[in-house]
Design a protein around this nucleic acid. Structure first.
Lengths: 160, 160
DNA sequence: GATAATAGTTATGCTCAATAACTATTATCT
DNA sequence: AGATAATAGTTATTGAGCATAACTATTATC
């Protein structure tokens, strides 16, 4: 973070790159490195991590989803979800109650506060992203989203 | 890794997503999550990490680059470079010698072995990536690279 | 009814990225 | 020129994130 701030006023070291920059994986990582700190900064202002916001957002869109499903959707480990869900619940952003038909599972639902926070934070994140992708015209932006979505199509997928 | 293998045969949990999937940052991360393990697997076969390969590749393209410049280009900390450079040198993939005019700096150059390894590994990585992005036609692929490059334009940039 | 599978949880270890502090060398300032 | 500051590389250390294994409670399967 301090590193980035410093480097913005550094000499932009010009180097050759005949290989690395032609690899999609590297380009994806680089683009993500530029945009992620922006989102993280906004979310930190609301005491949220990226992953917490992701959970809250999916729960808000899918009332009754259980932790295993959430973990599968976000491609993360169930075990690492526990503390995140705990905190979201303690902050009153989500509720969880046992599913009567299967008492192993907890149905997760976003509270009104949770849904409102999700919506307002999402808007702030969107604006923060725009600061980075501002140089993209609407067509390129839409095209980018569509192509990235297709790259993600092999995995457990969300519907739009 | 085992997680991903498992989930490919899992029920593809269908969920709503009205917000998260419309954020560029999330889409970038997801796309990267699909492609990165492929690259990592290929590189691991050559006892390389992603970051080691990145260093080797930039050094191969920029003989005489010094560690600070390399760190700036790859947007990483100088301190974290040290062990990577150490290992690349010990494996005979790069050489480093003091710059006569500034004895603080080490000029890095790829050896013939290093350049050959860089080239052959790059080709394997490219093929591994194709397994994921195969569903993209050449136009979409080129367009994606161009757009991602523009997102990265604010940072110390490589020339193509 | 016995055995296996699943959901959630806890504890733990590993890999990275970030920070601070240090040495050697060079640049800057008066 | 000499004092002071800045830079390059290094070392040690920390904390976050991710993965794995092992456990309990509950449900599914044979």
């Amino acid at each position: 973070m301090a590193q980035l701030d410093d480097q913005f006023q550094d000499d932009p070291v010009q180097v050759e790159d005949t290989v690395l920059g032609t690899l999609i994986g590297y380009r994806l990582k680089r683009a993500y490195m530029q945009i992620q700190p922006q989102a993280q900064r906004v979310l930190a202002g609301e005491n949220l991590r990226v992953v917490s916001f992701s959970c809250l957002s999916i729960i808000a869109d899918n009332p009754g989803i259980v932790q295993s499903e959430l973990a599968a959707v976000l491609q993360m480990e169930r075990s690492n979800l526990v503390v995140i869900i705990d905190e979201l619940e303690q902050r009153g952003l989500i509720g969880r109650e046992r599913v009567p038909t299967d008492r192993r599972r907890y149905a997760l639902t976003a509270t009104l506060r949770g849904r409102r926070l999700r919506d307002s934070v999402a808007e702030k994140v969107r604006q923060a992203e725009d600061a980075v992708i501002g140089r993209l015209n609407p067509q390129d932006r839409a095209h980018l989203l569509a192509v990235l979505e297709r790259l993600d199509a092999g995995a457990p997928q969300t519907t739009t």
